[in-house]
Design a protein around this nucleic acid. Structure first.
Lengths: 208, 208
DNA sequence: CCCGAAACGGAATCGCGTGTCAGTTTCGGA
DNA sequence: TCCGAAACTGACACGCGATTCCGTTTCGGG
């Protein structure tokens, strides 16, 4: 049920392949030079195709950036939801391990290719209102995901009963966001950053 | 020593006044429609001046956005440094109070006028490389400020001795960033958000 | 009240990038 | 090998907006 009807055959597959290549090339260009600074011609040139061809695959410039973002959002949410259900854990220690695992996934995506956070956080919001709303939706989605983990923890009793779940979730996501942004300049600090984040959550910053 | 040489007189003052009005109008436009979507003509029209006049005050479109950002950065750093030196406190309780005070200042700036975070976080980074570097510099500056507070706390012994100061500072700033971004949609949640942030720092999220 | 300098305004210029389109090439099937 | 459909190409047609420039207006000093 994951893929739709068979894409007929050969030529059709070629088309889908080129379509994918265009999305990737556009991602490269947008991340490197920025959305407004790259022209359709740049994207086409990168693939060695005429820029008229581009319009056989995408309506217009605005159209493709949506697809690029789709792609990235898919990667990120995929990493977040895969094999890490909130109710897979039942103790604080397990929870901490799980959060480390999730942090690692995110780190892999954001840290290994800084173009991903650059596009999602630095380029996309400035494109237009619709896109910035989309990014805000993404934050909201992330907040509700995190909130689900917290809710689960409160119910099982390994997290504070009086947790302000929603706002705490946003604060935690903020820390993750901070990590992603840091990785724009110092991708190698990603791991330490992630550990510091977890220490704040579990140990706080105060001396005992 | 705060102001330079006297700006001669009357007419000169008028000029400075208009200059300021242009900066404000540009801020309005950029925050509302976005940098790329606003033309110089829009800024000029908002003030009822000819757009040619604009060029008597600023070199070009790129020039003015720098001044707008200067202005905002000044406001933010002003709020951060004013009357809140790191060494003004010496106990955890005082520190917590101070952080609440700082949070309140930031909340006033970000929460009361969402256009400020929208411009700084959503519009500016997408303008060009130079501007996004500038925003990253701002994050670095903020990180070093926060780090100074943490260092002071560690030295006086009211914060954990084994704190990873730099990364913890970035994580904390990330939470603040998250709050600022939330305030784009729900400015009224600002206070609760800020409180949740402090609870994470001081109490953690784990059940006792 | 008059004059020259400085400020203003907005029509005109110019460059750039999006999107179109008609001619050309490719390719699978017969 | 030949044919028609489908894909590709890039020169071209716009439209848009930044910047310029010069005729007009304002204003302070004499």
């Amino acid at each position: 049920m994951t893929s739709s009807a068979e894409p007929v055959s050969r030529a059709e597959r070629k088309k889908q392949e080129l379509r994918r290549e265009i999305i990737d090339a556009a991602f490269d260009c947008f991340a490197e030079r920025g959305y407004h600074a790259t022209g359709i011609a740049d994207v086409a040139a990168r693939l060695g195709i005429g820029h008229g061809t581009f319009y056989r695959y995408f309506q217009n410039k605005r159209d493709i950036v949506d697809h690029v973002v789709d792609d990235l959002v898919g990667r990120v949410t995929g990493a977040l939801t895969a094999e890490n259900a909130p109710d897979a854990v039942s103790t604080l220690a397990e929870y901490r391990e799980q959060s480390a695992r999730i942090g690692e996934s995110l780190g892999r995506i954001f840290g290994e290719d800084p173009r991903v956070p650059r596009l999602l956080l630095f380029e996309a919001p400035g494109i237009d209102r619709a896109m910035s709303e989309r990014i805000l939706d993404l934050f909201d989605l992330a907040a509700s995901l995190t909130a689900a983990y917290l809710t689960h923890g409160v119910e099982l009793g390994y997290l504070r009963a009086d947790l302000d779940i929603d706002n705490t979730a946003r604060a935690i996501n903020g820390m993750i966001l901070g990590t992603a942004i840091s990785s724009l300049r110092t991708p190698e600090a990603q791991v330490a950053q992630s550990e510091a984040l977890r220490r704040i959550m579990y140990d706080g910053i105060a001396a005992r």
